[in-house]
Design a protein around this nucleic acid. Structure first.
Lengths: 190, 190
DNA sequence: CATCTAATTAGATTATAATCTAATTAGATG
DNA sequence: CATCTAATTAGATTATAATCTAATTAGATG
């Protein structure tokens, strides 16, 4: 979905009167004067808001005699509401989605029998799998000193400086005033 | 969730710059000047928008030295985005959710051996089950003349006028310039 | 086709919001 | 503690939006 469509949806829906109209129409169609009455506004004001809601396609109408009934298009509403959740992100992530079997193979190849890291993978995908593995022993939500991180990494590899840096670059951890902490976003569900 | 919270969420998110910030932060945290650079705006403008986004709780921050990194709270974003879908409606609907066994019993009680309706249930819940049953033979999406509807109802009961009116009142059908049509919302999933 | 009903449009008013430049503040560091 | 960096706030400007009253339009009906 294109950006402007999403912006417009939220701009339109970001108004108390219009959300009230949506809530009213969830219980069934109503005509303009009924809405005006329930909300304590004049018919022209309702016309104005209905036009905006129709522009983003969440309202349609049926006429019966002189009265026009406005209906909510719940399907559309739902679709548009969820668009913001899906926007951006995913840039290249998909191509990095990886199943457990593949992870297992990479870990087996790069660790020796004692669990020591033989080398740091050059290929990004493999590197991420290894970093995820190395980070597993750390506790979520607590902060670590740089020294503690170094000690942790040394269990696997001597070059703790490089790996510590990779933790930050690849966003497995973040640093805050010299303290280290696991990224709580668990976004590396590669 | 209370109305104002939802209004405010959409009002805040209904701005091109702010949606762009959200999209940027999906790929990981950034600091203010980086965002300003990418969007071609000045740092004060970014501050202004970040404040708004923080107010609705979709952004949090971590400082490292002089630089403050802004992070997206995707969980919150998702939660808030979906609130509009759940607002209102459901008024009493839940209490009318009914399983097939119950439907079967009601239909058995109110129809005779030939499938004729013995009487129109007074209890709303039972009435809805019966109306749903009566409406089953009609085709979705096509329009019927009043006469056709009457004929259809007469298969079950003589008092077609009352039942036709109930179809409209209970929103199984709607009327448009004297034509009748099934409500496409299939909202009577009682 | 005159008249009624309900909706819409026009035009004005007032409130709200986005952006900038310039000034200030918060925190880190030699 | 002086200085640097990055963020924030103040104040002004300009654009946008919500609402009303009065006028107009669309469609139905005797």
């Amino acid at each position: 979905m294109q950006l402007d469509r999403i912006v417009n949806f939220h701009k339109t829906i970001g108004d108390k009167t219009r959300i009230q109209i949506i809530a009213l129409l969830k219980d069934g169609a109503l005509h303009g004067q009924a809405i005006a009455g329930k909300l304590g506004l004049t018919p022209p004001t309702i016309s104005y808001h209905i036009t905006k809601l129709r522009e983003i396609d969440v309202i349609y109408q049926r006429r019966d005699k002189n009265t026009i009934y406005f209906h909510l298009n719940e399907k559309k509403l739902e679709l548009l509401a969820q668009a913001i959740i899906k926007i951006g992100g995913e840039k290249e992530l998909d191509s990095f989605k990886v199943d457990d079997e593949e992870k297992f193979k990479v870990i087996k190849n790069f660790l020796d029998a004692n669990g020591n890291l033989k080398s740091i993978p050059a290929q990004r995908k493999k590197k991420l799998i290894i970093l995820e593995h190395l980070v597993k022993g750390l506790e979520k939500g607590r902060t670590y000193s740089e020294k503690e991180i170094n000690e942790h990494i040394k269990q696997f590899h001597d070059d703790y400086a490089t790996i510590r840096r990779e933790f930050i670059i690849c966003q497995f951890m973040f640093r805050q005033n010299g303290e280290y902490e696991l990224n709580p976003k668990e976004m590396w569900l590669i």
